[in-house]
């Protein structure tokens, strides 16, 4: 029996009087990739923000690895194994690739081992031996090892998205939310990105919830798919079945 990494039930979210999400329910199986598609403004990013705790839902439930996280803070969710990337890349503009991963690894240690945060204003920021090994491992995994000392302000959009993924991975999460990871990437980079997440799913126990415009990414990588239309779930289930759904074909694929 496959267990669920994420289970969302009847999630509603409003901006003022504007209903953005209406009764959204979906489940991400453990160790799988779940796609979310929908037209511009369908509420995909808002959905991720609510799941990650950046926005508070009006009603509904969110379960992560069987635990109810609806009332948890952003940090609480990270502790329980949630990580994310952004549609508009959010990197630390003055730092280099290495520091992004290093900071995330430190945060993981702090959050997972319940260490009290210390007033480290005199300890120098460089990595300890153990941290250095861990950072290299992550960078190796995502193929950024040769770029570790490059300032992120100078890397391409494709690589920036890789850095965001590396930062998320460094938190050692159970579920990673990806917001349009392939937008702005060329087909080559997109291919590498899908291979990478497929590999990660195969080699570790992480799952992905991935918002995506590019149907080829959806068909090659996801097992399950949810279609959002104006804040409502149009269809949700196995990717092939959802894509065959006549409603989806009509409204989303336009056929």
């Amino acid at each position: 029996m496959t267990k669920e990494a994420l289970k969302v039930q009847n999630l509603c979210f409003n901006y003022g009087n504007l209903e953005i999400l209406k009764d959204v329910s979906l489940a991400v199986s453990q160790n799988s990739i779940h796609g979310v598609v929908g037209a511009n403004g369908a509420g995909k990013s808002t959905f991720l923000d609510v799941v990650a705790g950046y926005l508070k839902p009006k009603s509904g439930n969110i379960n992560l690895m069987g635990k109810d996280i609806t009332g948890e803070s952003v940090v609480g969710r990270i502790k329980l194994g949630l990580a994310r990337t952004f549609q508009k890349v959010e990197l630390y503009s003055t730092l280099d690739v290495y520091d992004h991963v290093l900071l995330a690894i430190r945060q993981k240690e702090k959050l997972k081992n319940h260490k009290r945060s210390k007033l480290d204003i005199f300890k120098q920021h460089g990595p300890s031996k153990a941290e250095a090994v861990e950072v290299d491992e992550i960078l190796e995994k995502v193929g950024l090892i040769n770029l570790k000392n490059i300032p992120v302000s100078t890397v391409s959009l494709g690589l920036s998205r890789m850095v965001e993924l590396a930062r998320a991975l460094a938190l050692d999460p159970k579920l990673i939310l990806l917001d349009e990871p392939s937008s702005g990437l060329n087909p080559d980079e997109t291919g590498r990105f899908t291979d990478l997440i497929l590999n990660l799913v195969a080699s570790s126990d992480v799952s992905f919830l991935i918002v995506e415009h590019d149907l080829s990414v959806i068909t090659t990588s996801t097992r399950e798919l949810t279609v959002l239309d104006m804040g409502k779930v149009l269809a949700s289930g196995l990717t092939s079945e959802v894509l065959d759904d006549p409603d989806v074909k009509y409204t989303y694929l336009g056929r």
């Binding site: 952003v74 940090v75 959010e90 630390y92 945060q107």
Partner: peptide
């Protein structure tokens, strides 16, 4: 420095 670079980015790894 990380926070000044991107607040949401920092939030995403739990930096306050």
């Amino acid at each position: 420095l990380a926070i000044s670079g991107s607040v949401p980015g920092a939030q995403s790894i739990g930096l306050d």
